[in-house]
């Protein structure tokens, strides 16, 4: 299956630029990621990480440059299209609606309906599927529980459950370990490992890269919109990455 061909990058971007007025938020950025690979994007605030994530997630378009999905150019990308091809993004602000149940959050925007006209929800099937995926992820939460009662780790888990359920090919986790307990961090690392084992490519956006060092295959450092370093995990260390970041600060 082409989707599992580990020699073809699942996502490749070439010479990506993004201007916000006079601000050059992303400058000639080229990047690729392969199935089952975890790449950490590192950089200070304003480095261009979130801009890149939002471009490939279809939130806004690039000013210049090309995006390729499995070697085919992705034109007129949108949130809908990105999700359709299999890009699932878990934003820093966590894309969950606190007052809705876990099940409704998992299916938000992609509900199972009984008909096409009125789009009556098939709540039973949605409930069963979310229970199944939560069980697979080892998340000990009730699927009808409101998300606002979930811990930080559980919230990440719910977002990851969404990626699992809809068979995402690329999952982007924006600050996945932010504001969660050490137990939660371990849980998130387990989720990431599980995704890699399933052949899902993972992009990690993190300030605290020491937490994601072990799980990462490749590091890309961004500074003021430009790529300043790209190294495989086995060829670098936390100290080296820290030094590079401090030098550019």
């Amino acid at each position: 299956m082409s989707s599992l061909n580990k020699d073809i990058p699942i996502l490749r971007v070439e010479n990506l630029h993004k201007w916000f007025g006079k601000v050059h938020a992303l400058n000639d950025f080229t990047f690729d990621i392969y199935p089952g690979e975890a790449v950490s994007l590192i950089g200070d605030n304003g480095a261009g990480k979130s801009t890149f994530v939002k471009i490939i997630s279809g939130v806004f378009p690039q000013t210049k440059g090309k995006i390729f999905w499995k070697n085919e150019e992705l034109k007129n990308n949108s949130i809908e299209m990105a999700r359709k091809v299999g890009i699932e993004t878990v934003y820093q602000e966590q894309t969950l609606v606190s007052a809705l149940s876990i099940t409704k959050n998992i299916f938000l925007g992609r509900v199972i309906t009984k008909d096409k006209f009125l789009r009556v929800l098939n709540l039973k099937e949605m409930e069963n599927k979310s229970k199944e995926v939560l069980g697979e992820l080892g998340l000990n939460v009730s699927s009808d529980q409101e998300v606002r009662f979930c811990s930080g780790g559980e919230r990440q888990g719910v977002a990851v459950a969404r990626a699992f359920l809809f068979k995402a090919k690329l999952v982007i986790l924006d600050e996945p370990t932010r504001a969660i307990s050490p137990t939660g961090v371990k849980k998130v690392m387990d989720f990431i490992k599980g995704m890699k084992d399933e052949g899902i490519a993972v992009i990690l956006i993190s300030h605290v890269f020491s937490q994601v060092f072990q799980i990462t295959d490749r590091f890309v450092i961004l500074s003021r919109g430009e790529k300043i370093l790209e190294k495989k995990q086995k060829d670098t260390s936390v100290d080296e990455l820290t030094d590079v970041l401090l030098e550019r600060h």
Partner: peptide
Amino acid sequence: EFGLNVYAIGGNPKTTEMMG
């Protein structure tokens, strides 16, 4: 689905938009 979207928008419009 429309009803669910109504509640989702009331709960968090930005998130709802990001969910497509």
